[in-house]
Structure formats: structure tokens, C-alpha cells
Design a protein around this nucleic acid. Structure first.
Lengths: 119, 119
DNA sequence: TTAGTATATTCATAACTTCGCATGTACTCA
DNA sequence: TGAGTACATGCGAAGTTATGAATATACTAA
């Protein structure tokens, strides 16, 4: 197996890892919330309405893939998207979503929030 | 909860599903192989060097999300990427990969094909 | 019809992901 | 020092995904 093939395999595994890291609604919401700049974890928690340990775990996933970076300021930890190209990726997918809206309606139906009902 | 919020949630779930579908090296290789047009399943099998049932299962994942479309011609089934915007997404990630190459070298090490890690 | 080729599906098992809960760490301020 | 805040980590249950092996379906050609 030559070195070029191996490089391409590595690149595919890399892409797959990035996709995997982005493959969760909460993590996508995190990226979107950070679109215009950094925010402290506490602010994300308030915006996304998720439990603190859960948010922290999702942030850990994004950190592990270097999708977000963080800096500590006193008591708080500010998070930011490392590379805006990921925002572009999300924007492309919004376009994709819109241009196939009719065809994906069925899919959306099956994507209803799991077992959630009026409280 | 208002309708706009609900729509945004749906969009995020949709994006997450697309990312999940793309989150596998073999499926990424499929998309890349189809970059310049449709190919029959048999050709994909030869290119990717995977077992036939395995390829078929990955194609089923991509079909379920309408990422690829297929048409039957006699004995064979031709597959094509439905929307070239997904090719653009992969290209963006290649850019991303290249611009962070140094920083992701460590990550690449951990991404070696399973079971080749040293203690 | 039968044999052969191309592709899809089913099944079992193993590996991974997600969540809530409990706990741990790090920092601030009195 | 101690109490409080902000965030991270470890754990176990439940659910999801990936794989190879076996089998099924669909089409072609003789």
C-alpha cells in the first residue's frame, strides 16, 4: 500500500471524526451559538437549556476534535469555534436542507424529538 | 415553544442526521468516488475494496438519508450523489484539514486503523 | 427451466454513544 | 481558612451502529 493511499485513508478517517463530532443536535446548537464569537459555558447552558454535565460532555467531544477552543477567565471558561470554515459547512447544509425541503418532510417527521410531550 | 424555535430544532436534527450518515470513512469514500458522476455498485466495490454486503449496507445508510440516489440498469444498480453541495462540504473539510495539519497530526496518530495502537 | 451474476437484507455480536447522577477540581471571596 | 460558584469527570443503563456470515431477491442468458 503506497503512501498516497494511506494519506487519503487518513484524511477520510479525519473527516469521519469531524462529522461524528458534529452529529448531534446539541453540538450543532453549540457551534451555532458560537457563530458570532466566544461565550462562557454558563451562557451556553442558559441558551441551550441542557443540564450542566451534559453540556460539559458535549463540549468535551468538540474539544477532543479541536473543533472548539477554550480559555479560562477567573471562574469561567469561554468557548469559541476554532475555525469559521465549520460555520460555512453548517450554512451549506442549511442551503441543502432548504433546497430539498419537500423531499425531506418525511424525514423530518421521523425526526421528532424523542418521546417529548407537553409538560 | 414557538414555531421558529421548533423549526430550528428540526433543522439541527436534520443536520445531525446528515453528519451521522457521513461519519464513516467508507461512506466518505463512496461520496468521493461518485464525485464525477454515477457508478455501478460493482465498480464501487472494486474501488473501495470492501465486501459486497458491507458496501451495500453503507449504501443503504446513504440512501435512507437521500444522500445518494440509484437507478437500475439491467442487472446493475448505478449510484450518484444527489446534490453536489455535499461534495462542497467534503472539499471544505479538506481545506480545514490542510490548514490545521500540524495541530491534527496527533489526532491522526490516534486514528490509525483499529488495533494498531501501542501502549 | 436452470445456472449465474449483481445487489440487498437479516442476524448475532461487539463496540460505541448518550444521558442522568454523583462526585471531583479549580477558582473566588469573605 | 471555609463556603460558594463554575465547570469537568467517572460510572452504569439504555440505546445505536458496524461487522461478517448466511441468505434472499432480481435480473440475464442459455
Amino acid at each position: 500500500m503506497n503512501i498516497l493511499t494511506r494519506m487519503q485513508d487518513a484524511l477520510r478517517r479525519f473527516k469521519a471524526q469531524i462529522f461524528q463530532a458534529l452529529a448531534h443536535p446539541t453540538r450543532i446548537a453549540i457551534i451555532e451559538a458560537l457563530r458570532d464569537g466566544e461565550l462562557p459555558s454558563s451562557r451556553l447552558m442558559a441558551l441551550l437549556k441542557v443540564e450542566q454535565p451534559n453540556l460539559s460532555q458535549h463540549l468535551a467531544v468538540l474539544r477532543a476534535k479541536h473543533i472548539v477552543v477554550n480559555r479560562k477567565v477567573g471562574n469561567q471558561v469561554y468557548y469559541a469555534v476554532r475555525d469559521p470554515v465549520l460555520i460555512d459547512v453548517l450554512d451549506l447544509l442549511r442551503k441543502y436542507f432548504n433546497s430539498h425541503l419537500a423531499e425531506t418532510k418525511a424525514m423530518l417527521g421521523e425526526m421528532a424529538p424523542r418521546g417529548r410531550r407537553r409538560p
